[in-house]
């Protein structure tokens, strides 16, 4: 086998049968395989695997933290929304109260002003009423006077003797009639 292998190698890589079954090369192969495996094993256990494991753990931690933070922020947002809604309702209630108060105040003022105006109007109309009565009475007196004078003049013009008292009585009677 050894001579075959050396011959094969000497001829520039010509295979004699199955090179796999050339047992003369086995110690060499096994030696280098073990070297390779030990090197890979050391690379993995000393550097690669702890590093990747740490990265994966870090990432998992980061994701967990982020999720927790997100949950917290969500709670905060919900709380803020609730506070906002409460404030809004409060403001609305306040506004309604202020409007009602204002409305009541205005109504009061309005009522007072109306009452005052009514009173003024009533006073004015009463005064006017008085004046009208006065004027009417004045007018009536004036008419009576004029009627008496006219009647006397008419009587005088007709050639009668005007008795002032009887004329006045007749006119007054007429006026009343």
């Amino acid at each position: 086998m050894v001579t075959e292998a050396t011959e094969a190698a000497g001829k520039g890589g010509e295979a004699v049968g199955m090179p796999q079954l050339d047992f003369s090369t086995w110690p060499n192969q096994i030696f280098w395989l073990l070297v390779t495996l030990v090197v890979i094993y050391l690379l993995l256990t000393r550097i690669a695997l702890p590093r990747i494991g740490a990265v994966l753990a870090d990432r998992k931690g980061a994701i967990t933290n982020d999720l927790a933070a997100a949950e917290e922020l969500k709670q905060k947002a919900l709380k803020a929304e609730k506070a906002y809604n409460e404030a809004l309702a409060q403001a609305r209630a306040d506004a309604a109260r202020i409007v009602a108060e204002a409305r009541a105040g205005i109504q009061k003022d309005l009522d007072a002003a109306l009452a005052k105006a009514d009173a003024q109007i009533a006073a004015k109309s009463a005064e006017s009423e008085g004046r009208i009565t006065e004027i009417r009475e004045g007018a009536l007196a004036a008419v009576t006077e004029v009627a008496k004078d006219t009647a006397r003049e008419i009587v005088a013009a007709l050639g009668g003797k005007a008795d002032a008292r009887s004329v006045a009585a007749a006119v007054t009677a007429r006026m009343k009639g």
Binding site: E14, P19, Q29
Partner: peptide, 24 residues
């Protein structure tokens, strides 16, 4: 099967247990 032949990488014909080959 030629592709499976193990050859010393730096010349020579003998393959000892420590020889650096194409497999190495």
């Amino acid at each position: 099967m030629d592709q499976f032949v193990i050859k010393p990488l730096f010349g020579g014909t003998d393959i000892y247990w420590y020889t650096v080959t194409n497999m190495t």
